[in-house]
Design a protein around this nucleic acid. Structure first.
Lengths: 123, 123
DNA sequence: TTGATTTATGAGCATAGACGCATATGGTTG
DNA sequence: CAACCATATGCGTCTATGCTCATAAATCAA
C-alpha cells in the first residue's frame, strides 16, 4: 500500500517534502487556479487550437488569452507550435485532465448544495 | 471511454462548464496552491493534530497557521474538532492526496531537471 | 517596400492574499 | 472572580497577479 502511494502521502510517512518541492507543487496548483486558464484547457481537450480560435471560444481579450497561454506553456502544460502567422497551442500533459477529474469529483462529493452549479459537468 | 471521464474532459466534449463551475474548480486548486497549506496537509496525513502541534511541525507562526487552517476547513478540506482548549484538525477529503499524487507524478514526468528538488517525494 | 493579420508584450491600475503584530475570544484551573 | 492557556481575528503592509490599453514583433501578401 505504501509503495502504491507517492508524493505528499508517502513523503510524509517517511520524511516531509523539501521546501522547494512544496513550492513546485503549489506552483503547479496555482497554474490551474484560474477560471480563464481552465476555460482554455477545456477548449484544448479536443486538440490544438490557434490563439484567435481560443479568443473566440473563451470570450476573452486577445491580450489576456495570449498571456494565459504563455503561462500555461511556460509551466509545461501546453505546447506551442508556429504555423505561418498562427500559433497553435496543445495540451502537453494530459494529466491535467486527470487532476480536473479528481477535483470535480471532490467538489461534487463534498458540496451537495452546489451540485447545481457544476451539474453540467457530466450530467 | 467518454463515460469513464468526467469534469472538464467530458464536460467540454458535450458542452463547456459553466462559469460558476469553473470558478469552483479554480477555487479548489487555489486552496492547494500554497506551500504552507501543503505543509499542513503533509502533517495531517497520519491523522488529526491540534494547532500547536501543527505550528511546531510547520515552523510557522501561530496566527498564520491558524489562518491557513481556517481556509482549509472553510473549503471543506479539513474538519475541525474541539476538545477542551485544543482544536484538532483532520483531513475531511482524502482525495486531496490523490491530487497531490497526480501533481507530483506530473511534475516529475515533465521536469527531469527538477527531479532533484522533488526526488525526496517517493525516492 | 507597404500594408494587413496574428500574436506577444510593456505600462499602469486594481485586487487578492500572505504575513506579522497585537489583541480578542473561548475554555480551563485555582 | 482572576490568571492562564490555546486558538482566532482585526489591521496594516507588501507582493503577486489578472486585466486593459496601446503598441511591438513576426509573418505573409501585393
Amino acid at each position: 500500500m505504501s509503495s502504491s502511494y507517492s508524493g505528499i502521502v508517502d513523503g510524509v510517512e517517511h520524511e516531509p517534502m523539501s521546501d522547494e518541492a512544496l513550492e513546485l507543487v503549489a506552483r503547479r496548483f496555482a497554474v490551474l487556479a484560474e477560471p480563464m486558464r481552465l476555460r482554455l484547457l477545456q477548449a484544448l481537450v479536443l486538440g490544438e487550437r490557434n490563439v484567435n480560435a481560443l479568443v473566440s471560444v473563451t470570450r476573452g481579450t486577445q491580450a489576456n488569452v495570449s498571456r494565459h497561454l504563455q503561462t500555461l506553456a511556460r509551466e509545461g502544460i501546453l505546447l506551442r507550435r508556429r504555423d505561418g502567422m498562427q500559433v497553435y497551442y496543445s495540451v502537453a500533459d494530459p494529466s491535467v485532465f486527470e487532476m480536473c477529474r479528481v477535483v470535480c469529483g471532490c467538489i461534487r462529493a463534498g458540496l451537495k448544495k452546489s451540485s447545481d452549479a457544476i451539474g453540467g459537468i457530466d450530467g
